[in-house]
C-alpha cells in the first residue's frame, strides 16, 4: 500500500493551486438548484410531509457526492492523456491498489468539500439539519463507490470525448432519476423497480433518513458498501490492464 500518500498528496497540491476556482465551480450547481427549486417552488409544495427545499437538500447532497466523487475521472484523464503524468505513476514501485487508494481518497475529499458547500448554502437558505455520523457515513460510502467507478472508467476510456459521453449517459441520468429530487413512490411500479437498483437511489435514501432522523437505512448502507468494494477491486484490475 506504500505510495498512496504520494498520489493523494499530488492531487491535494493541485487542488490547493486551484482552490478558489474549484470552490466557485463546486458552488454553482447547488446554488442554481436552491434558487430554482427553493425560491421557484418554495414553501408552496410539500413532499412526504416536508417542504420541497427540505426534501431536495438531502437528494442534492447525494447527487453532489456522486458528481464530485466521479469528477476525479476527468482529472485522471488529463493526467493520463494530456500531461502524461500517469506514466510517472506506472514507472514507480507502487502497487495498483496504492494508486487507486490515493485517487479514491481524493474523490472522497472532493465529495466532502462539495457537501460542506451545500451545507453552508442551505443554511443561508434557512434549511437546518443535524448532520450526524450516519449522514457522513452515507456520503462517504457514496463517494467511495463513485470515485472507484471513476478510476475504472478513466482507465477504460481512450480519450476525453469518451469521458464526456459517460457523464452524459450514466452520471447525469442517475443524478436525476435516483430519488434525489422526487420520491420514487410516485413512479410507475416497473420504473420504480428499475431505479431501486441504482446506487444513487440508496445514497439518497440513506442520506435522507439520516438527516430526517429516521435512523440508519442499513440495507442501503450495505448496498453502497458492497458495490463500492466491487468497483474498487475492478478499479485495481483496470489500472493493471491500462498497461500497454
Amino acid at each position: 500500500m506504500k505510495g498512496w500518500t504520494a498520489i493523494y498528496y499530488r492531487e491535494i497540491l493541485i487542488l490547493r493551486k486551484r482552490f478558489f476556482r474549484q470552490l466557485a465551480s463546486m458552488s454553482v450547481m447547488p446554488l442554481l438548484y436552491m434558487i430554482a427549486f427553493g425560491y421557484g417552488i418554495g414553501e408552496s409544495v410539500t413532499v412526504d410531509g416536508v417542504t420541497y427545499m427540505n426534501f431536495m437538500i438531502p437528494g442534492l447532497l447525494a447527487m453532489n457526492s456522486m458528481v464530485q466523487g466521479f469528477g476525479i475521472a476527468a482529472e485522471i484523464n488529463i493526467a493520463r492523456f494530456y500531461w502524461r503524468v500517469f506514466e510517472e505513476f506506472q514507472a514507480a514501485p507502487i502497487r495498483h491498489i496504492a494508486y487507486v487508494t490515493g485517487e479514491v481518497l481524493f474523490g472522497i475529499t472532493r465529495a466532502v468539500m462539495g457537501a460542506l458547500i451545500i451545507i453552508i448554502l442551505s443554511w443561508l437558505f434557512g434549511v437546518r439539519f443535524s448532520y450526524n455520523g450516519y449522514f457522513w457515513l452515507a456520503l462517504i460510502l457514496n463517494a467511495f463507490l463513485f470515485a472507484s467507478l471513476a478510476v475504472c472508467l478513466a482507465m477504460v476510456v481512450k480519450s476525453h470525448a469518451d469521458q464526456a459521453l459517460l457523464v452524459n449517459f450514466v452520471i447525469t441520468p442517475m443524478g436525476f432519476l435516483g430519488g434525489t429530487f422526487f420520491p420514487l413512490e410516485r413512479m410507475p411500479l416497473i420504473i420504480k423497480e428499475v431505479l431501486s437498483y441504482l446506487p444513487i437511489t440508496h445514497a439518497a435514501i440513506a442520506i435522507r433518513q439520516a438527516l430526517f432522523g429516521y435512523g440508519p437505512a442499513l440495507f442501503s448502507y450495505g448496498v453502497l458498501l458492497v458495490l463500492g468494494i466491487i468497483c474498487f477491486v475492478i478499479a485495481v484490475w483496470c489500472v493493471d490492464r491500462a498497461r500497454e
Binding site: R10, L13, I14, K17, R18, W83, R84, V85, E87, E88
Partner: peptide, 8 residues
C-alpha cells in the same frame, strides 16, 4: 514526452 505537472 514531457510529463511534468505543469501547475506544480
Amino acid at each position: 514526452a514531457l510529463n511534468l505537472d505543469n501547475e506544480l
